[in-house]
Every structure is written in C-alpha cells, then in structure tokens.
Design a protein around this nucleic acid. Structure first.
Length: 701
DNA sequence: GTCGTTTTTC
C-alpha cells in the first residue's frame, strides 16, 4: 500500500513544510512571500502537490537533512480516503463526546490499511489534512482522517491536526463545530490560537476575548495575529470602544509581543474608529519613531476621527502630511476632512474644500455631495442644496434616496417639516424612488410634528409600494403615537409589528416601557420587561435610564435607585443621562438634598457634570426655595467653563419667583441677553409673570 | 460606506 516512487515534481521541501502550517504566522517562514500565498489561498499553493488526492510528493531539499530519508517518497492516500468514503460522501458530524471508542476487535482489512500507513511522517499527514481542509466539501473527510489517525494512533501529535481543522472550520463559518472539536482534548497554545482566530473571523468577539484571557490564565500568550484579528473584528462591528482597546493594548505590551506593521495599523485604526483620535495619534507617533509606517487607510481613519470630534485643524494637518509624503489623497480622504468642515467650520470652508477637490482631479462621490447638501441645509440654503442636486446629475452621480433623506433630516431638525412635501416633489421630478430609509425619515418627521395622519398615510404608501417596514419603521410609528398620547394605537402597532413577523428589538421595548411608565401602568411595564428578557433581548443603558426616569418622575425613588444599582450589578456603566434623570426627578419635587446627593454620586462615578445636570440642580434648589444656592450653581458653571443657556436663566428666574423676589428677575433676564443667549417663549413668559406679580404686590401695598 | 428609531432640564 505504501508506494515508494521517484519524485515527480521538483519542489523545495521548505515550501511543503510551510504549507502544512495551520497558520502562517505561527512560525516566521524564511521566505515571507511564500507564506502569504500559503495562508491566503491554500488551494492554489497546494495544488502543485495535490492535483488530486492521489498523492503527495516532495523532492529533496539540500539544506534539510532531518527528513532527507523520506523526501524522495511518494505516499498514496487514495486507498485511505476511499476506505473512509466507503459509505458515501463523509458529512461533518461532530458530537460533544468522542463516539469512536478504541478498537477492541478490528476489521482485518482496516488493520492492514492502518499498517500500511505506519511509516508516514507527520508532516505528510498535516499536508494531506491541509489539502482536505482547503475545500468546504471535504471538511467531513478531513475530520474522518483525523479520527482514524487517532483510532490507530498513527500520528504522534494531534494538536497540530486539531488546529488545522479548527482553523478550517472557522474559515467555513462553522464556529460551533470548531468549539466541539476543541473540547476533544486539552487546549494547547496551538489549538487555543486556532480557536481564537476562528472566533474573531466569525465576529464572535466575546468568545475570542474570553479565550484570550483563559489562555493567559493557563499561562500561555496569545498569538499576536489573534490580537490583529480581534481588533479587526471589533472595528468591523462598529461597536469598538476605546477602553476595551486600551486593555488589549496593555496586554500586548505586557506580553512584550513585537508590534508588526499590521497590528500597529489595526490598533491605530481601532482607536480612530472608536472615536479616540488622541490615542490613535499617540500610537501613530510611536509607530513612526520605530520605523513602522502607517497605511493610507489608517491615516484616513485618523483624519476622519479628528474631523468627527471637531478637531478640524489637526485633521487638516494630517491631510497635508499625507499629501506631502507623496500620496495623492482620494475621494475618501477628502470626504473625511469635508465632514469636519461641515460640522464645525463656516460654510465657505466646505465649499472651498470641494472646489479644491475638483481642481486636483479627484471626483466627488455620493458622500461628498450629501455632505455638501448637509452643509447647505444646516445653513438654511435650500436653493444651494438644490443646485448641488443638479451638479450631481451633471457629474454623473445619480442622486439617490439617501441624499434626499439627509436633506429631509436637516429640515426636520430645523423645525421645517413642511418642506417634506417639497422634497418629495423634487425627488419625483428627478426620478428617484424613495426607499425604506427615506420613508422612515418621512414618518419620523411627520411624527415629531404631530402629523400622525400624514405619518400613517406615508406608512400605507410604503406598503402599497411593496416596501416592507423594518424595525426602525415600526419603532418610529409606535413612538410618535406614544409621544402624542395615543397609547392604545401604539400598543396595537406593537402587536401588529409582531404579527407581521418583525421582532421587537431593545429600542422597541424601550419605547413601550417608556409609554407604560408615563401612564404609571407598572404591572404592564414589568410584564413587558419580563417578556423582553425572555425573548433574549437584553435591557441596555437606555432601558435602565427610562426606568429610572419614569419611576423617579412618579416619586418612586426607591425603585429608581434599585434600577440604577441593578444596572451596575449587570456590569453596565451608568451614563450621565441616567443621573440627570434621577437629579431631575428629585429636583421636580424640590428634594434638593437628595438631588445634591445624586449629583455627588455622579461625579464620584467619574462623570463630568453636564449643563443638563447643573440646570436640574438649579431647579432643585429653586423648587426648595434655596435661591442663594441656585445662584451658587450659576457661579460654579461660570468658573468651570460650562456655558449657561436659556434653560439655566429661565430656571433661575423661576427660583426667584418662588421666593417672591420678583424685582430681581429683570436683572437675570438682562444677564441672559448679555451673555448671548436668545430668549425663547418660555423665558419671555417667565419674565412677564414676574412683572405681573410685581404689579400685583405694588397694588396690594 | 447599513443612512433612519429609544432615555434627561425651564
């Protein structure tokens, strides 16, 4: 059965050796160019050796004498593969327990077969396995080979075989099977790494992170490639958080893993995507000083992060640096910077950016135009926005539904909901069909301005055009009905959503919980919370904040605090919004001591007092007739760089009225105007009522 | 590049 034949193909043993590796970076291969091929497309590199499964051949390698006695051999694995497939194609079936017991009696044919493979050196088994693993359809056979080898004890280290299999399962999105397989023996660094890689590739970040820490507890270091894979998965997920990334970076440094170009780039991009451009820049500086260069995409991600956090000057500087290093920025880089200009700068900065783009021969894309439209809409220049739409057509970029939804959202946020009809008309004239996302914005706009009939008509139109509403559509509809007191309709829609096969998500439950809470229907609220959990939807920070808010507003402070504590115990970090809700609840009832106490807990939790929290604190003192302390909060704001707003001054005026100090109100109103705050209707009416009271007191005396 | 939906102040 064992065939010894002269070599058919002249190949280097090194190559053969390295393609057997489950992961090209486990060992640094001497020829790096080859290692890349071996990993990225195992089938192409191995096809030289296994044009079919008939055999495996290797030629002599001059430098390597360890295997020099076997390298001239050719092994024929086809009898084995035929034997294993004797009942038809081998499906991949894994059980949590090994079902293959050690053989008590053995079929003589099988025994003979096993005997014939006794002398095959391990690297050949690895190669065979690697070859079988390169195709999804032969994964079952690959597993059968490994089981068979174990049964006959033919290969002496199984961890490499297992890691090859785990790696292949991970690549074929068979994470569950990879886990089952890994349970068949104690995890070794090799199998750990394969499993972590499989989790990361399948975006199961939690499992990957868990395994990394388990591995550390077992005294092993994770392969640095896994850190790259995990960070990439985190970046893909868009849920990347700077604190988590910092922890990973600390681990990497602690393990003294050498940062390679890929890992450095992944880290920098991760920090950028998590909205932490400072750390991204810091790491960039460190990388550059050690001679590791950042990829263009990495630099663009930092530009984007800087622009998004309003640090346009630095974004611009980095953009310049990119250009001076000889790289011609492309549309994406321009867009990143443009986003910053639209956010912070005057309109003309955005405009000149686009014209410079055109001068440099970089063509604007859909995003460029939609950013420009955002800029014009924010500046209230509807005509200019329309011109951009025309330019898009001229520039061969078909305006799509997305551009119009941005346009509409801009109007909605500026209170100009009536423009919705104009936008719809414009779309029709250009011939752009509204899509689901656009309709969602339309429904939201009508809903926010209490045009519930229009919202429902839009919903019907959507259905008649064959567009299936999604979670956002339902959430928007349910919420706008709740917001305008139509709780029964909201509840009906919630039921209709489920009937139509759209599963409620955390946001849906949050909306309904808020609705029940507002109505003080505590039992219904608790029932819904229970249902939420039973459906596997985890309450998030917004859920808990909503609970704190509704309990607090109805004076159920103990319940509110229980929610806050429960959230902490679940491991979620209380947000400042949550403390604001609590402070506000105390404030509205004039419980200033409790409000101050909640404020203290908030700061001791490391949260910075926001304008909202401070305004609520002013309200707490005001409602408790402690006007001097209310003004002390104003002083605190001024000293700590928090700019008072209309609400601040209106609340202070209210505090003065509460203690009958009407004559002091006009002075506060004046200070408000002097500090640059525009008085709104509430502020004016507060002043008016103070003046009215003043007149009454004068008349009375 | 998945846009759009949920929580907090007078």
């Amino acid at each position: 059965m064992l065939l010894i034949q002269p070599p058919l193909v002249s190949s280097r043993f090194h190559s053969l050796y390295f393609i057997t590796r489950p992961h090209h970076r486990f060992f640094q291969p001497p020829i790096s160019a080859f290692s890349a091929t071996a990993s990225s497309s195992p089938s192409s590199s191995s096809s030289t050796y296994f044009s079919s499964w008939n055999g495996l051949e290797a030629s002599e390698e001059e430098d390597d004498d360890e295997f020099s006695t076997v390298v001239r051999r050719r092994y024929d694995f086809s009898p084995l593969l035929k034997f294993l497939s004797r009942f038809g194609p081998v499906e991949l079936v894994l059980d949590s327990v090994n079902t293959e017991p050690s053989p008590v009696t053995l079929d003589p044919v099988e025994f003979e077969l096993a005997e014939s493979y006794k002398a095959v050196p391990a690297p050949y088994w690895h190669s065979l396995l690697k070859s079988l693993c390169s195709s999804r359809s032969s994964l079952g056979l690959a597993y059968a080979v490994v089981s068979w080898l174990e049964k006959h004890n033919l290969c002496f280290s199984y961890e490499l075989l297992y890691s090859i299999l785990i790696h292949a399962l991970g690549r074929s999105e068979k994470l569950y099977e990879a886990f089952l397989l890994s349970q068949k023996q104690t995890l070794t660094p090799l199998t750990y790494n394969a499993l972590i890689g499989a989790c990361a590739r399948n975006n199961d970040i939690d499992k990957a992170l868990n395994l990394i820490s388990r591995m550390r507890r077992d005294g092993y270091q994770s392969d640095f490639v896994n850190y790259s894979l995990v960070i990439q998965a985190l970046t893909r997920s868009n849920k990347i958080d700077s604190a988590l990334l910092q922890n990973l970076y600390r681990e990497i440094k602690h393990d003294k893993l050498e940062l390679d170009v890929q890992l450095v780039n992944d880290l920098i991009m991760g920090f950028a995507k998590s909205g932490d451009p400072s750390r991204a820049l810091q790491l960039l500086g460190m990388a550059q000083s050690t001679g590791l260069s950042a990829k263009t995409a990495t630099l663009v991600s930092i530009i984007s992060a800087l622009a998004n956090s309003g640090r346009t000057v630095e974004a611009e500087a980095l953009f310049e640096e990119l250009r001076q290093s000889g790289i011609k920025p492309r549309t994406k880089a321009y867009n990143a910077l443009l986003r910053g200009y639209v956010k912070t700068g005057p309109l003309r900065d955005a405009e000149s950016m686009v014209s410079e783009m055109e001068k440099s021969g970089v063509s604007p894309d859909e995003h460029t135009y939609s950013l420009l439209i955002d800029a014009y809409v924010n500046a209230g220049r509807w005509e200019s926005a329309r011109i951009v739409l025309k330019e898009m057509e001229a520039g061969d970029v078909q305006p799509n539904s997305f551009v119009f939804s941005r346009l509409l959202a801009g109007y909605r946020d500026r209170g100009e909901w009536q423009k919705t009809f104009q936008v719809l008309k414009e779309m029709k004239s250009i011939g752009v069909k509204p899509d689901r996302q656009f309709y969602n914005v339309v429904i939201d706009t009508f809903g926010k301005f209490n045009c519930l009939d229009h919202a429902m008509t839009t919903f019907d139109r959507m259905l008649s055009e064959g567009i299936e509403p999604d979670r956002v559509t339902w959430n928007t509809l349910i919420d706008c009905h709740c917001k305008h007191g139509r709780h029964i309709v909201a509840q009906e829609m919630f039921e209709a959503m489920e009937k139509r096969g759209c599963l409620p998500c955390a946001t849906t439950y949050n909306i309904m919980i808020n609705s029940y809470g507002d109505q003080e229907r505590w039992d219904d609220m608790k029932r819904l919370l229970g249902k939420m959990k039973s459906q596997g939807v985890l309450p998030n920070v917004v859920t808990h904040t909503t609970l704190v808010d509704v309990y607090g507003k109805s004076g159920r402070f103990n319940d509110a605090i229980d929610c806050l504590e429960e959230m902490k115990s679940v491991g979620l970090k209380p947000s400042s919004t949550m403390y604001n809700a609590l402070i506000n609840a105390y404030a509205q009832r004039g419980l200033s001591e409790q409000a101050v106490n909640a404020f203290r807990v908030m700061t001791s939790d490391g949260l910075k007092p926001s304008l909202l929290a401070l305004n609520s604190l002013i309200n707490a003192f005001g409602e408790d007739r402690r006007d001097a302390e209310a003004f002390a909060v104003l002083q605190y704001m001024k000293e700590n760089g928090v700019n008072p707003d209309v609400v601040t001054y209106t609340t202070l005026m209210k505090a003065l009225i509460r203690v009958d100090k009407f004559q002091k109100v006009p002075g506060v109103y004046e200070e408000m105007i002097m500090s640059g705050c525009k008085p709104d209707r509430k502020a004016r009416s507060m002043l008016r009522s103070a003046l009215r009271y003043m007149k009454q007191t004068l008349r009375a005396s």
